[in-house]
Amino acid sequence: MTDTKTRDKWDRAASFFDVSAAWGTEKRWAPSKKNLFSWMDGTILFMAAGTGLDFPCFPPGQRVTAIDISPKMLERARVRAQQYPGHIELMEMDARAMTFPDGCFDQVYTSCTFCSVPDPVSGLKEIRRVLKPGGMLRMFEHTGSRIFPFNLMLHLMTPMSRIVGPELNRDTLGNLDRAGFAIQRVENHFLDVVRSIHAQAPTH
């Protein structure tokens, strides 16, 4: 069942999302995202497509299934999907209740997704379900920090950031462990906050 509270929040955010998250953010993270997405191969699921700001960072020629909980976000993503030199199929879906059969994707990609999914461990378990055994989850995420005073500041900023969208103090590596993924590699891009994470689903 779709989480209507989350869907409505992101529907509201859709109108200003490109202004708040576009130029500075996309310019800043484009090289790191391109590097992460360069691993794309096989059947690919892209979580929380938003307005499709990440699509220009995808390597050309891929077939990608991209989902988002918000129909308003997907409306805006449609134009960017059409401009992509490959194929992107957009679908409205809740990350925690996907309608895909078990083990149907080789790889799953996320980009600033698990700062927003309300119950991240159940969302990650759902990804594990749709991944083939040994399939790869590659994430570009911002997480909480272990470094003082940044950890404290992220905790203080989270009640405000939660209103408009993401949480800033998530323990995403811990959540991956709890969801049964084996973390293979972590690359820090900004402090220990903005990171690329490579994790593998169990092989059996």
């Binding site: 202004v19 576009a22 500075g24 800043r28 911002h142 005073p149 500041m153 900023m157 800033l168």
Partner: peptide, 23 residues
């Protein structure tokens, strides 16, 4: 810090990279 963060965000990056501004 919180107010100015919103001024700088569109130019230099999202909320999570505004930590030096907050500090």
């Amino acid at each position: 810090g919180m107010l100015l963060m919103f001024v700088f965000m569109p130019f230099f990056g999202a909320m999570e990279v505004m930590l030096p501004v907050m500090l």
